[in-house]
Amino acid sequence: MSAAPAVRRRRRSRVPALFLLPFCLLFAAFFVAPIGYAVYQSLFTTQRSGLGLGAAQTVFSGLANYAAALRDAAFTGSMLRVLLFMAVETPVMIIFALLLALALDAASVRFPALFRSAFFAPYGVPGVIASLLWGFIYVPGISPVVQVLGGVGLHPDFLGPQTVLWSIANILTWEFAGYNMLVLTASLKAIPDELYEAAQIDGAGGLRIAWRIKIPLISGALILTTVFTIIGTLQLFAEPLVLRGLTANISDSYTPNLSAYTQAFTDSNYSMAAAEAVILALAALVLSFVFLRLVQRAGGPGAGGPRAGREAGRRRTGGRR
């Protein structure tokens, strides 16, 4: 770009704005504005007295809702639960998705599109139906899986107080592993064939090519999927909501998002719901940021594709690379 004449550059300076305009407008209207409203709401509390019938008073209360949320053992407990969930589920999900993507990318696989569709299919099943279905597999009494395992002397309780979180993890893996695989696959497709050819000439085998060429080159996509999995696990919501019908071991504040939902939709305490949602969003922001910093410090590229990653890395390290 630096080679372009100054005149043309000025003419072009309006171009990115035009390209960005539709997105920015919609984003401002449907993300920024409602977020702003939610944050604003979180600073108020509703004051009632007596039976609380009739109009209530809404008063500014600063960070009182945030303090109350952080004092609430059920809410902090739900935060710790999703943190544990995130720490276990994220690596499981990403490694599994990576294995699927690499296996499909191997030259020897026939009908890769067929497999890809099969792996991606669960993403197309609505969450309610997916959870209903897994519920059918989890509930003792009619579960074919419990029946089969019972035959070999195993009696798993998929919905027990200690196990139900991991049964939810399985549903999540089932729903989204194919989705993450697709992101990684799209990234693998952007790797120029010449690189493989060169490696093959050098006598590298499939495993070695995967380890030395593919994984480093799609590290941007890997980081991307990891960040989104971190966010997704922290926002865990639909699956526990549906499974609640099957087991009493999932409370109405089992996850922070579920807790905010309960506050907003059954208790109609919208301010508290907003405060909890903001805390959750901040936690996600901090964790994603920490993760990105860790990756950077480890010397990997930042979030971005193969090339963007390298550019970003160069920028951050001041060209030392």
């Binding site: 209207a29 977020i35 969003a281």
Partner: peptide
Amino acid sequence: AIFSVILAGVMVPPTALALPLYLM
């Protein structure tokens, strides 16, 4: 900055956005 804001937008749980969006 734009890029970061976009990324941050993903972090906000949709449960918090439903009511404001509806009111708008």
